[in-house]
Design a protein around this nucleic acid. Structure first.
Length: 291
DNA sequence: ACTTTACCCTGTAAGC
DNA sequence: TGCTTACAGGGTAAAG
């Protein structure tokens, strides 16, 4: 489940492999629904001969800036991968579409579960990126902007962190990890966080993402559903996870068993000891806050 | 306007 | 061993 650190890893892999600067010579599409807003014929027409000028990332989107103010976005969703081949993969296996570059290499978008999507957009056209909140590693993401984004939101903080409009790039793994680091219970109402809570959470998000990125992302196991970089390398961040998929294992801070609950259709992992749901003396809605 | 739920998908693992 | 079932979850659309 590629989140910000995994997508950033792939973006850097693409730059290191010198994909930027190349031109697209030919495209093939084996699963047309991967194309979110175009059809295989127009996709090929638009890309043929076009240069890839720059490769970056925004939230969980890979951003390919193309010549003539064209943008191509790729979202890996759950199992999307980018891979390099020397020739067209035959059979394509899980490859859903691929670009042949002018140097002969084949860049393939592979996706076992077919959730991944590719957009082709004019630079000035409406884009999925428009809806994204701040980049968590940018200076614009502060305790103040986080508090502002959570204002008036009564949903639990866990699903709030998964809302890409509040902050871009978090998924289930790093949302759980950030809440653990900030000692916040996943069920805490978003608008109940104090300014101090927001500062802790903002710093926790950045620390968790920074360390995951340094480890090349998180790979949970092996096989098709796992994360791999462009060269097929798994991430090395798994040993650094404190709660995610550590149900019943001891919390690394207090040794209480990590708990799992289902929240907004997703698993949430937390330490019931380090991340208390209510503050002492203010558990019931009717109890008066002490001043 | 906000919040919750259903849906898309299939590899993997658990259960019988 | 082989089959069936549950589970994983990012994002969108529809429902509440």
């Amino acid at each position: 489940m590629p989140e910000l650190p995994e997508v950033e890893t792939v973006a850097r892999d693409l730059v290191a492999a010198r994909i930027a600067g190349r031109r697209v010579a030919e495209t093939r599409v084996w699963w047309p629904r991967t194309l979110a807003n175009s059809r295989p014929s127009s996709f090929d027409r638009a890309l043929n001969g076009r240069q890839i000028v720059h490769i970056g990332r925004r939230g969980k989107y890979l951003v390919f800036s193309l010549a003539d103010d064209l943008i191509m976005l790729a979202h890996l969703r759950m199992t999307g991968r980018l891979r390099l081949f020397e020739a067209w993969p035959n059979p394509p296996g899980h490859a859903r579409l691929a670009w042949r570059l002018d140097d002969g290499r084949i860049l393939a978008f592979s996706d076992a579960r077919k959730f991944g999507r590719i957009w082709l957009l004019a630079a000035d056209a409406p884009s999925p990126l428009d809806a994204l909140g701040p980049e968590p590693m940018d200076n614009t993401f502060t305790a103040d902007t986080l508090a502002q984004a959570l204002r008036g939101r009564s949903l639990p903080i866990k699903p709030a962190l998964l809302d890409q409009r509040i902050v871009a790039g978090l998924g289930n793994i790093y949302a759980d990890e950030a809440l653990w680091l900030a000692r916040l219970h996943p069920l805490r109402r978003a608008n109940s966080l104090s300014h101090d809570d927001c500062r802790l959470l903002r710093n926790a998000i950045r620390q968790v993402l920074r360390k995951a990125l340094a480890g090349g992302g998180t790979s949970l196991g092996t096989g098709q559903g796992n994360f791999y970089g462009l060269q097929g390398q798994p991430g090395r961040n798994l040993p650094r996870l404190n709660v995610y998929r550590r149900t019943d294992q001891p919390c690394r801070r207090c040794h209480a068993p990590v708990r799992r609950m289902v929240l907004a259709q997703r698993s949430a992992h937390f330490c019931p000891c380090c991340q208390p749901e209510g503050k002492p003396g203010a558990v019931t809605p009717r109890s008066k806050p002490r001043r």
